[in-house]
Computed example of a mutant assay.
Amino acid sequence: MDLRDYFAGQAINQLTAISAKGDLDRGDAGTPAEAIARQAYTLADAMLAERAKATGQEGGAL
């Protein structure tokens, strides 16, 4: 597991709660689970980009 996977995993609980309320944008994802997974990795990518800006560290090693 790399840092991207870790960040995505941390986002799953909140995204699941948002989805249960019907507030998650499913976009082109077919199922709620696919939408949650896509959103989780989108958030993880954004977190890694901000981390790289702040620290100058790229990559996702734990």
Rank of each mutant, 00 (worst) to 15 (best):
M1I: 07
M1N: 06
M1A: 14
D2R: 08
D2L: 09
L3K: 12
Y6V: 13
F7P: 00
F7I: 13
A8P: 01
A8G: 02
A8Q: 01
A8N: 02
G9H: 04
G9A: 07
Q10S: 06
Q10F: 04
Q10E: 07
Q10H: 09
Q10K: 13
A11Q: 08
A11E: 09
A11M: 05
A11W: 06
I12S: 02
I12G: 08
I12K: 15
N13A: 13
N13Y: 02
Q14H: 11
Q14W: 08
T16N: 04
T16I: 08
A17S: 15
A17V: 09
I18E: 00
S19Q: 07
S19D: 13
S19G: 05
S19T: 06
A20K: 15
A20G: 11
K21L: 11
K21G: 09
G22V: 06
G22R: 12
G22K: 07
G22A: 13
D23V: 08
D23I: 06
D23N: 11
L24I: 12
L24G: 14
L24C: 14
L24S: 08
D25V: 09
D25C: 12
D25S: 15
R26I: 04
R26E: 14
G27A: 12
G27T: 06
D28M: 05
A29Q: 01
G30F: 00
G30P: 03
P32I: 07
P32T: 08
P32N: 05
A33N: 10
A33W: 06
A33M: 11
A35S: 01
I36R: 00
I36L: 04
I36D: 00
I36V: 14
A37D: 03
A37T: 08
A37C: 05
R38E: 08
R38F: 04
Q39T: 11
Q39K: 12
Q39P: 00
Q39L: 04
A40K: 02
A40M: 01
Y41V: 02
Y41P: 10
Y41S: 00
T42M: 08
T42E: 14
T42K: 04
L43R: 05
L43N: 06
A44F: 02
D45C: 02
D45L: 01
A46N: 09
M47F: 13
M47G: 00
L48G: 06
L48S: 14
A49C: 01
A49P: 03
A49E: 03
E50H: 05
R51F: 15
R51L: 05
A52S: 12
K53Q: 05
A54Y: 11
T55Y: 15
G56D: 04
G56V: 12
G56Y: 01
Q57I: 06
Q57Y: 09
E58N: 04
G60E: 14
G60A: 13
G60K: 09
G60C: 07
A61C: 07
A61Y: 07
A61D: 10
A61W: 04
L62M: 10
L62K: 14
L62V: 15
L62A: 02
L62I: 13
